[in-house]
Design a protein around this nucleic acid. Sequence first.
RNA 1: GCCCGUGUAGCUCAGUCGGUAGAGCACUUCCUUGGUAAGGAAGAGGCCGUCGGUUCGAUUCCGACCGCGGGCUCCA
Length: 640
Amino acid sequence: MANVILPSGKTVEMDGGALLSVLQERGETAAAVVVNGQLQDLRDPLPSAGEARAIGLDDPAALEVLRHTASHVLAHAVTRLYPGAKLAIGPAIEDGFYYDIRFPEPVNRDDLPKIEAEMERIIKDDLPIERVWLPRAEAEALLAEKDQAYKLELVQEIPDDKISFYRQGEFTDLCRGPHLPSTGLVKHVKLLDLAGAYWRGDAARDMLTRVYGTAFPAAEALAEHVKWREEARKRDHRTLGPELDLFSIQNEMIGAGLVLWHPKGAAIRHQIETFWKDEHYKAGYRLVVSPHIGRARLWETSGHLDFYKDGMYAPMDIEGQEFYLKPMNCPFHIAIYKTHTRSYRDLPIRYAELGTVYRFERSGVLHGLLRVRGFTQDDAHIICRPDQIEDEVLACLDLTLHILGAFGFRDYKVALSVRDPEHTEHYIGSDEMWEQAERSLVRALDRKGLPHTRMPGEAVFYGPKIDLHVLDSLKRSWQLTTVQFDFNEPERFGMAYIGDDGQAHRPYMVHRALLGSLERFFGILIEHYGGAFPAWLAPVQMVVLPVTEAEIPYAEGVADELRRAGIRAEAWTKERKTLRWLIREAQVQKVPYMLVCGAREAAGGVVAVRLRTGEDLGPQLVASAIARVQEAVAARGVAL
RNA sequence: GCCCGUGUAGCUCAGUCGGUAGAGCACUUCCUUGGUAAGGAAGAGGCCGUCGGUUCGAUUCCGACCGCGGGCUCCA
C-alpha cells in the first residue's frame, strides 16, 4: 500500500491507481503529486507501495506546473484564433511563462486581450488535460499532418520510442509534463508582453513571436505581481536618470552606448569612487592608472586579438603603428608588474584601477546604463603565490561584502563556474591548478558562509571563477562581482617571481571587479533606490528654501555654512516661487533635507527642517542640522 | 543583426477621414511677497525622424532608410 499525503494534510492509503478520483471524492484539489521526489500527473497511476505527496495549487512547487499548463492554454487559444500558427516551445520561467509561436500574420500588444479572452473561455470550460503516449512513427505522422515543423524537429531529437503528448479538448501538444488535471485550475492568468525570439536562440533560424504571461494560484498574488512590474517600470533608470538630470546618452551627437555623466550623476559617482578608493587602500591594494590605447603587440601578447577581437574596435594607425582601444585593463597591470624582478616576499601584489574600457556591443543589446560600449570597470588584479590564493580570495569576498553592504545589498547568490569535466582539453592550465583554484574559491566561500551553486562547464577557458549576484530592493537579481582566476595571461606574458629556492616561478593571477562597471552599477543603484539616494550619495544633500525674498540673504548664509561643513547644499534663491512650489520641486528632485527659512527662522538663527519622507522636524539650529546629515552620511544608511 | 511596436515643441502627449498643427510642464516677461508637493497672466518655441513615391496639394496614404523601446533558449 502507498501512503499518500493530501494537500489538506490528511493521508490516504492507496494500492496503485490514480490520485485524481480520490481527491475528487474528498473534495480536494491539487496540482500534481510527488512520487520519489519526481513530480507526476494526478491521472498517472501511483506505485503500489511507498510514499507520495499531493501538491496543492498554492504550494510553491505547483507554481511551475500551473504556469506550464497556462502556457498550454495560451497555445490552445492561439491555435483557435490563428489557424496555421506554428508552435515552438512554451516553458514556465522564473515569474511566469512564455510560448514561442510563429503566427500566420503579425500580432502586436493590442491582440493580447483577445487571446487572453479565448484563454478565459478554455479555462471556464474546465477541459480535462490528459496525457497520451504515441509511438514515434505516429507522433511524427501526427505532427507532420498538423504541419508543426518545430515540434517535429523536437520529436526527432527525443531518443525514446514513446512520445508524450497532452490533450485538452481539441488541442494536443507535444509535452513531457507534468500538467494540472484540467484547464479550470488555471485561474489567475495574464498576458504581459510580446517579443521576438529566434527558434532555438539561433540568429540564423526563424524569428518567432514570444508571448509572455504569468499565472498565480490567487488573485492577490497576480495583482501584486502586476503592481511589482509597475513599480519596476517607475524606477527605470532610463526615465529617472534624465528626469533627475543624472546622465544622458545621445546617440546622434555622441554615439550609442556612450554615457555623459551630468553634474549630479558625477557627484554620485565621485562619492562611489572616493569610497571605493579609500576601502581599497585600507585593504592593501595599490591604485594604478593606465592608458586608453595600446599597441597591437600588447593585445597579441595578451591573446585578446585571438580570443576577444569581436569585442574590440578597429585599430587606429599612429605613425605607422597599430593601436587598439583597450577592452580590458589586465595587460597594462601585468606590464607594471613586469617592470621589476619580483621576489616571493613582494607578493601578494594587488593593483586596482577604475579603468575605462571600450567594447563593441551590437546595437540591439545596448540598454541604458546597463549595457554600454564605454565603461569604467572597478578592476583589480591580484598576483600571488599558490599558498596565498585562499586568503586572497577570502579577502576579496570580505571587501566585496563590505562595499556592497554599504549600498544596502545584503542578499547574495553565488555561482561557481568550473570546467566541463568531459572536455578538460578545452581549458588552459594544469589539472592541479584548476583543482587548487577551485578549492580556494570554495573554502573562501565556506569561510564567509556564502552558499554557492557549482556550474560545471560554465568557466571560461583560462580559469574558474565565482560570480556574485545581489538582490535589490525589488528582489531583482543583478550580477555584480566576479572573481576570476587567469592561468593564461601569466603564461603569455611570462610573469614570474623568484621563490625562496632562488628559482623563477609562475604566480597566480586573479581578476576581480566588485561593482562590475560604474555605469552599470549606477544604473542598478538608481533603480535600487528609486532615485532617492541616501544622504551619503545624494548629489544635493540639503536645499535651503527662503519663504519670501526678504530671507534670501539669510538662506544664502545658511547654505554657505553648510558647504563649509562639507555638505552638498544649495540655496534656492533665484526663483521667486512660493514655498509650496519649492517644496514640491525638492520632493521631485528627491533632495533628502529641506531647510525652510522664513522670518521666524531668520530672526531666531534657526532653520525649519523637513525630510524627503515628509517628516517635519521643526526649527533646528543650523549646527544640529549639520550634525544630523553628517551622522546619516557616516552611517551610509537609507535613514535620514 | 533579427521580430514586434514606436518617432508631432526641451519633456509628456493630443490631432489632422490629405488643405503644412494643439495641450500641460519647462522657458521668457509682467503681476503676485507667498509657511511645507505646482499663485496668476501674457509671450516665445515645430523641415510633424530622413529620403523617395502617389496626389493639384503629404505631417497625414505607400515604400525605403535612420533613431528609440520591448525581446532574442530559463530548451518538448
